[in-house]
Design a protein around this nucleic acid. Structure first.
Length: 376
DNA sequence: TACGCGTGGGT
DNA sequence: TACCCAAGCGT
């Protein structure tokens, strides 16, 4: 073929036929307008409040998030208020919600928004992606819901809905599958109502196109669903294989002195990063208690000896089985800083209970107090 | 790239 | 009871 006869590159054919695309958009939006839940973040247009909801909702269910979202906004009503707050205060407001790196990243991003954007969240997915804690999903969610940009998004719900609607094969995490899901989301998102449409997709996945026992008879787009037509709804998407949780054992120092307990704040990364705890040192499961005393001595930077074993608290995380051994310890000097920790503080029980602390450590603290380490 | 990172609701 | 896993991100 001579260069003069070369045609312009033909556009890639759409993944979804235009008629079907319109039918899906209309069906899902009409269903959403009738059936959407009355969620508190759907009553605001404040981009910061919407951003906060999206971060809290990562890997966390709606019912769990609602009270946290309301309390957090009362405590930190604006990006500026959040940016200027000390991290430990932010983590205290996040206590019990889990995945604490979300709170650390939110805090960093708020400071970035103040520094780079005068405290106003940027309005495009591309700009949002440059902020800590914004991945492809959250950037698309905030851009579409808070700012009306027709940006696509794919979360666990959307992945499930699409894998059924379009019979997308492959295991979760498969690159080809992920690329196809995002391409479908990009074609399908409504240019007129992108935020509502994206929420409609997720709401549909959460309430109708559920993982188990999907309510196909109530589905507004059943006739457009390939898995429904082919009787494959229950085999799509394939379940993801989950690694067995790893065991971790911690020795906890329960050190009482003058009516106070020694608390420590962890380094700001990894498990429970930045949170307060009874000073902890990782040990092997079968470590004898004198050896645990050695580990705690190292962590605290001052000699401690174990006076008694107060008990054991077990806690199951998704990816870890935690065993916390509570050791009543004492020593001749009372440290106020230590090599393994960000901060140390001698706390009354009341002070301790207001600190940002994981649920696991909160249970350990309760067990220590019930054991009578601080006689009234 | 695959793994580390929490918690509580649902069944 | 003991699983399942939910509006993901960072490394």
């Amino acid at each position: 073929m001579s260069p003069s006869r070369k045609r312009a590159p033909s556009p890639t054919p759409p993944l979804i036929e235009p008629a079907r695309r319109e039918s899906l958009r209309a069906g899902l939006l009409a269903w959403y307008d009738r059936q959407k839940r009355d969620l508190p973040w759907r009553r605001t247009r404040d981009p910061y409040a919407i951003w906060l909801s999206e971060v809290m909702l990562q890997q966390t269910q709606v019912a769990t998030v609602i009270p946290y979202w309301e309390r957090f906004l009362q405590r930190f009503p604006t990006v500026e208020a959040l940016a200027t707050a000390p991290l430990p205060d932010v983590l205290a407001a996040w206590r019990g919600l889990g995945y604490y790196s979300r709170a650390r990243n939110l805090h960093l991003a708020a400071q970035d928004v103040v520094a780079r954007y005068g405290g106003k969240l940027p309005s495009t997915a591309a700009q949002l992606l440059t902020l800590r804690g914004f991945g492809r999903y959250t950037a698309g969610a905030v851009a579409s819901i808070a700012f009306g940009e027709p940006a696509p998004l794919v979360d666990g719900n959307v992945a499930r809905v699409f894998s059924r609607l379009f019979e997308v094969e492959g295991l979760p995490g498969d690159r080809v599958r992920e690329a196809r899901l995002w391409a479908l989301a990009t074609e399908l998102v409504s240019p007129e109502r992108p935020g509502d449409f994206n929420q409609a997709l997720m709401e549909h996945g959460a309430t109708v196109c559920r993982p188990d026992n999907p309510l196909c008879l109530l589905c507004p787009v059943r006739e457009d669903c390939l898995a429904w037509r082919h009787g494959r709804v229950n085999e799509l998407p394939p379940a993801k294989v989950r690694a067995a949780p790893k065991r971790m054992t911690l020795a906890l120092a329960v050190w009482a002195h003058a009516g106070r307990l020694l608390l420590a704040r962890r380094e700001e990364k990894g498990l429970f990063g930045g949170l307060w705890e009874l000073p902890a040192a990782e040990i092997e499961a079968d470590t004898p208690d004198p050896e645990s005393a050695g580990k705690l001595t190292q962590a605290l930077g001052t000699p401690v000896r174990v006076e008694a074993v107060l008990g054991t608290v077990r806690r199951q995380l998704t990816h870890r089985s935690l065993t916390l051994r509570l050791l009543r310890v004492t020593g001749s000097t009372h440290p106020t800083r230590a090599p393994a920790f960000r901060e140390l503080r001698w706390c009354t029980p009341e002070e301790a209970s207001s600190l940002g602390m994981s649920t696991a450590m909160h249970k350990a603290l309760e067990a220590a107090l019930e054991a009578g380490v601080l006689p009234a």
